[in-house]
């Protein structure tokens, strides 16, 4: 059975959940082979193995660290050359898509981005035009390179052989031309990751800048917090929390929009959520067109009262 290369998305060795989802999807296409670029991967290897990695290629990051995307694309291209895999799967982050784009050109392969599903025969499903269309596509040339959105599959445990192989990649000078001069890690909010969360509670201009009701409600549900661009542009919350066309795309089980009108650019990032709820003062806000349940009211009174009731019920 051919290998399926899965580029491991990790922060200082901590494997992020979408990678486990990719391993699960990879099993449909062949033998999952994780590609870990970085140092001291013991815990990571154990986890990758637990979720089905038959092989783990470990690539020392001394040559890749400190540069933007290009070296990682070179590592993958050399592994594609070596292993002739059935496919290469990468998480659909900004960086992941850029790596995939460069890899496609390097290897003369077709590329599909932002898949939400992959079938056994390699057919992918994507959601396009702000979630209003579903597209099925397939790579027809070279090694299929597919970037997959977080939350597209449920990670399934299933021990793989987890055979570790050190891989010495050669990084060209030209891949080192864009240097990372400084890096400021984002502080963790302690809440679930936006793109991975089962429930997302978001706030917009209607919060008036006070996110406390949003955060309190989110915490009562164990949810991630998100925002509209209006809230981000006002400086109320960092851009990393923005949902929409130019922010994150989320597809949780439950999305609760508060004080958000529902502009097309916002919908683009949340329209595929399973259940949608909105709280808005204006009964004509377009967000109400897509809700399963809506409350016409002031979020400043509705959310705290709901938070209290939920906390009470949970005892």
């Amino acid at each position: 059975m051919s290998e399926v290369l899965v580029l491991v998305d990790h922060v200082d060795g901590a494997v992020r959940k979408p990678t486990l989802e990719l391993l699960t999807l990879a099993k449909r296409l062949g033998a999952p082979a994780a590609v870990f670029i970085g140092a001291s991967p013991d815990d990571a290897v154990a986890q990758l193995k637990k979720y089905g990695a038959e092989k783990v290629y470990v690539v020392d990051d001394a040559e890749t660290k400190g540069y933007l995307v290009a070296p990682k694309a070179e590592v993958l291209a050399q592994l594609v050359e070596k292993t002739s895999p059935a496919a290469v799967l990468v998480v659909s982050t900004a960086e992941g898509k850029e790596i995939a784009g460069r890899l496609a050109i390097k290897t003369g392969s077709g590329l599909i981005t932002d898949a939400v599903e992959i079938d056994d025969d390699g057919t992918t499903t994507q959601s396009v035009f702000a979630g209003s269309y579903t597209v099925k596509a397939k790579v027809t040339t070279g090694t299929p390179i597919i970037t997959v959105k977080p939350n597209s599959a449920t990670p399934q445990e299933g021990e793989g052989k987890g055979e570790v192989e050190q891989f010495a990649a050669t990084i060209s000078d030209s891949a080192k031309k864009a240097k990372i001069v400084a890096s400021q890690p984002r502080k963790s909010s302690g809440r679930p990751e936006l793109t991975e969360a089962a429930i997302v509670v978001s706030g917009g201009r209607g919060t008036g800048g006070d996110f406390e009701p949003i955060e309190g409600f989110a915490d009562s549900l164990g949810a991630a917090v998100g925002a509209s661009r209006a809230a981000v542009d006002s400086g109320w919350i960092p851009h990393a929390f923005q949902i929409g066309q130019t922010g994150k795309t989320v597809s949780p089980q439950l999305y609760v929009a508060n004080g958000i009108s529902g502009a097309i650019q916002h919908r683009a990032g949340m329209q595929t959520s399973k259940t949608i709820v909105a709280v808005n003062k204006d009964d004509e806000a377009p967000i109400f067109e897509l809700v399963d349940f809506g409350v016409v009211g002031d979020l400043k009174t509705v959310l705290p009262a709901a938070t209290e009731e939920i906390t009470k019920r949970k005892g």
Partner: peptide, 18 residues
């Protein structure tokens, strides 16, 4: 290098209870 096999409009979301 890739081929679209099918495109389908998602059924519009129907409004729930308000």
């Amino acid at each position: 290098w890739s081929e679209v096999a099918d495109t389908e409009a998602r059924p519009p979301r129907s409004q729930g209870e308000i």
